[in-house]
Design a protein around this nucleic acid. Sequence first.
RNA 1: GCCGGUGUAGCUCAGUGGUAGAGCACACGACUCAUAAUCGUGCUGUCCGGAGUUCGACUCUCCGCACCGGCACCA
Length: 631
Amino acid sequence: MSAFYVTTPIYYANAEPHAGHAYSTIIADALARYHRLKGDDVFFLTGVDEHGAKIHEAATDAGISPQAYCDRIAPTFTKLWERLNISYDIFMRTTSNMHKRGAEKFLAALYNSGDVYKGTYEGYYCRPCERFVPEKELTDEKICPDHKLPLEWLEEENYFFRLSKYQDRLLAHIQETPEFIYPESRRNELLRVLEGGLEDVSISRASVSWGIPLPFDPDHIVYVWIEALTNYMTALDYENESDRYHTFWPADVHMMAKEITRFHALIWPAMLMAVNLPLPKQIVAHGWLTKDGEALSKTRGIFIDMDTDIETYGLDAFRYYLLREFSFGNDGDYRPARLHARYNADLANDLGNLLNRVLGLVNKNFEGVPTPTIPGEFDDEIKAMAQATIDQLDAHIKTFAFDAALETIWEFVRRINRYVQQTQVWTLAKPETKPRMGTILYNSLEALRIISVLISPFIPDTAEKIQNQIGLTEFDTATAWGGLSVGIEVSRGEPIFPRIDTKKQKQPQPKPEAKPKKKAEKKTTHLVAFADFQKLDLRVAKILAAEPIEGADRLLKLQVDLGTEKRQLVAGIAEHYTPEELVGKQVIVVANLEPATIRNVESQGMVLAGSGDTVVLATLEKEMPLGTQVR
RNA sequence: GCCGGUGUAGCUCAGUGGUAGAGCACACGACUCAUAAUCGUGCUGUCCGGAGUUCGACUCUCCGCACCGGCACCA
């Protein structure tokens, strides 16, 4: 028996969970269950990351303390995991004492490694962001890229981790351990990042209050990302280095969505190298979900309605669909219509119906599970296929190919349907052929039992239902052929996946999603004196000409007419507007902004636009004379 | 603009230097134990476009197009 430790990320607790969290967690759950089935000693971690400025901010917006806010959010995750039948062993909360003490221990060790140094962070700071704006994001105006507010020059004492020192070792490790980062596309991406060079990272924040103080300097709070990563160890009682820790560290799989691989595959391993601890074996990234071809978006109201689909098709259909239809590592397009198709074709027709027809025949002709006495055509083939399926499954899980894994199982399901068909069992009820009939039905039941075992990591409730109907009282995980006892009483219950007709399902569809979610928008952060506002000179202008800027995907060069004068502006709207459609439009322009040079093009002002998931130009309700002041 | 990935039947995707595959959908047939289920047969493809290497390319090389990522860019 070997140990297997799988983790999901600890999800940031500034908002309630969504389908993306569900996807990561279901994948990890399937892995955990698969390894338990193989007899491994499994530890499965998930949880929430509860510290940091953003949570503080969300709590402030909600008018409660950060802790109270976290206490409100955390249960929304655990409730969802219950609903999704997630078999986690621990739900980590970073506000727990176990984590805090473990994190402190880790940070102390990191400090003692000598790779933490105190430096002065000088730079332009954005108060609303609570962060320094990196050099490369800076422009001549010194304005925050997110808030568009002036930055202040700040010098802050900060602790740094000597990440740069580990560049070569990281590079070597990734090169020598091809499976360390999976899939390969992510690995290549990170190799390129490494080749480009690493800079030391700041690991503390003096300006943030909601977090864990550095053990070696309580005036500073650990940067939330650094602290969060340690949870993978603190959850194992790293603090006391108890048995659990020794059994399960290093982790076998850190599962996550593709956008956070850098922290996991570069910074986290480097931190572990610094304190001389073994590295996790695999950093695994899955793709994102889209909905009917569109990126999920809170502001645009595009989301996956898990509740409705689970209610309509059942939890296992939802799990099955996510695991079966999406090829791991790529983005997957979630389409309720496909879920529906999968439900009927794979679950109702192939599997559900097979169980039902076999049980019907057994019920009608035998008392309980019949005895296999007369071997015949196809029997050996079926048995061999059972074993082959088991072997192939193993290979697929190793590469996280859940789609192929389920397809492999379903080939076997279809084979059994064919077996029943080919042997024409239902015609064998005559006395002289009845023993053969019993044998075929035994084989079919045994195949179904093995199928139930194989699907149990993916759709556990269904696996249990099948075994219940076969008559097993306790879930039997044996995969060797012949494990099914003769004579036990089968109970043909209701179809486990009743077909759902296209017609009556999905009626007019109430479309509760028609309107975008009510603004998740954060409150505006800082108050500005009216006098400050008056400093801005906003004017009505008309776009005379627009053209792309060479080498920049997002930029357009605009010529605008302010009435009294013409100006050239650069606007980052090329992804949302074509030059043609801009010409002639009235827009609002900040006329007294310092000129800036962007991509070698001079910009004498700025065009206002709503900027969220999409970008929409600000304009006046009716046209007004060019140069009119806006206030 | 740079780097990487993808582009194969209506849909989701496999695939190999030697005459194109699966599942779903569709059509027809068989069967009637079963959930309008099952089983069989069949159907559709300029394997993104162009050029090249080769006796032969969907598979290799180059150029291009589209989409998706990463980086740069967003005043």
